[in-house]
């Protein structure tokens, strides 16, 4: 029964990530896209753990999830810093 709960949660997370992709693609500013990417990254960290539970192999997926969480944080910081330095935003 718990397996179905985890399966449902994984599918719900995928749908939510697809909705977030609307914000990433649609803009309007570049920082909206960075924010959407950050939100998707947080969801991916959780989704990796759920996949680990579904495959009955959490001990392997937890390391991947840790690496993904660190990378997501650093990527957001780096992107924010980069566009802080280049004042001229591409597009609008």
């Amino acid at each position: 029964m718990m397996e179905y709960l985890f399966l449902g949660c994984g599918i719900a997370l995928l749908l939510l990530m697809a909705l977030c992709l609307v914000r990433v693609v649609g803009g309007p500013t570049i920082l909206d896209r960075i924010l959407g990417g950050n939100v998707i990254g947080t969801k991916t960290t959780v989704l990796l753990l759920i996949i680990g539970v579904l495959y009955d192999n959490v001990s392997m997926f937890v390391d991947i999830a840790i690496a993904y969480a660190l990378l997501n944080f650093i990527a957001t910081l780096g992107a924010a810093k980069y566009f802080l330095r280049n004042r001229n935003l591409p597009g609008e």
């Binding site: 950050n38 937890v62 969480a69 660190l70 944080f73 957001t76 924010a80 566009f83 802080l84």
Partner: peptide
Amino acid sequence: ILAIAAFVFIASPTATHAVTEAALII
């Protein structure tokens, strides 16, 4: 797994600060 939770708890507001400040300066 709990270490991931603690990290997310610290990192997520920090990322928010960084992005907000970038938006204000731009």
